[in-house]
């Protein structure tokens, strides 16, 4: 192991600084130098910078374990989860910037939560039981085990916003629902507990802000931290929506 070589490496983090709440603030890059520790993640590095160098630096971490989706940011120009990015996998110079598309709170912090809530309201991302509410004292409805696994697979999305930040369409169309939204429609479409039909889903995503807005650049698929099968899901959903649309 190269631990002796790496353990005292100096790294430089070049972070985009900008506080939109300050009238006179200008976006700029600020550089922080620190000593790399073994096993250091960007969570550890940024926390150390805030504690020891610059208490005003804004960023978001919650779980610091790669499961909550809070810490999406541009890491050397590519969207990713900062908490599980290990500094030794990067060069000595690391550039960090906030995810584009989302409203900027300040520095590396963006309001992806607000965006996601808007998307959920628009696409109605919940099971529509259509009045079918079972008696919870009784044995639950059976579900095919493989189907349950398939639904879980699509349910693994953590709404980190990396797919939206990497999306060409999202840059051009403010109301584009992104791979995150399309994947959610695919997830509920697959779920037999959701009684919506394709005609209902077509109303939600059958336009250029939905599945027909996707240009198939598919950066979303490449950057998704949970490796969701976005490419196949979007293609499949588009085919189904074309069928629905031509049916009139």
């Amino acid at each position: 192991m190269a631990e002796t070589n790496n353990s005292h490496r100096k790294i430089r983090i070049h972070a985009l600084r900008y506080n939109p709440a300050k009238a006179d603030d200008e976006p700029r890059i600020q550089t922080y130098e620190l000593e790399e520790a073994p096993g250091m993640t960007l969570f550890i590095a940024l926390s150390e910078i805030r504690e020891k160098q610059d208490p005003s630096l804004q960023f978001d971490f919650v779980c610091r374990a790669g499961i909550c989706g809070s810490c999406g940011m541009m890491i050397n120009g590519r969207p990713g989860l900062a908490c599980r990015t290990v500094t030794k996998d990067l060069g000595e110079d690391i550039s960090l910037a906030p995810l584009p598309v989302f409203e900027l709170i300040g520095d590396l912090s963006v309001n992806s939560g607000k965006w996601m809530r808007g998307m959920s309201e628009k696409l109605e991302t919940w099971v529509h039981s259509m009045g079918n509410s079972p008696d919870i004292k009784r044995i639950e409805e059976a579900m095919d085990p493989a189907l349950a696994e398939a639904v879980y697979e699509l349910d693994r999305c953590i709404e980190c916003g990396c797919c939206v930040a990497s999306c060409g369409t999202a840059r051009m169309r403010q109301d584009f629902v992104g791979a995150v939204g399309l994947n959610k429609i695919a997830r509920f479409r697959l779920d037999p507990r959701d009684k919506r039909a394709d005609a209902d889903f077509y109303e939600l995503v059958g336009d250029d802000n939905g599945v027909f807005g996707c240009m198939s650049l598919l950066a979303c698929h490449d950057v998704c931290p949970k490796s969701l099968p976005l490419q196949t899901q979007i293609a499949f959903l588009r085919r189904k929506m074309v069928v629905q649309g031509t049916r009139g």
Binding site: I136, E141, A142, P145, F188, R193
Partner: peptide
């Protein structure tokens, strides 16, 4: 607790199922 699991099942939690 059993009622809670079953309510969540109805709401859409993809519980792992018995094969």
């Amino acid at each position: 607790a059993p009622k809670a699991v079953r309510e969540l099942a109805a709401w859409g939690v993809p519980w792992s199922r018995v094969r």
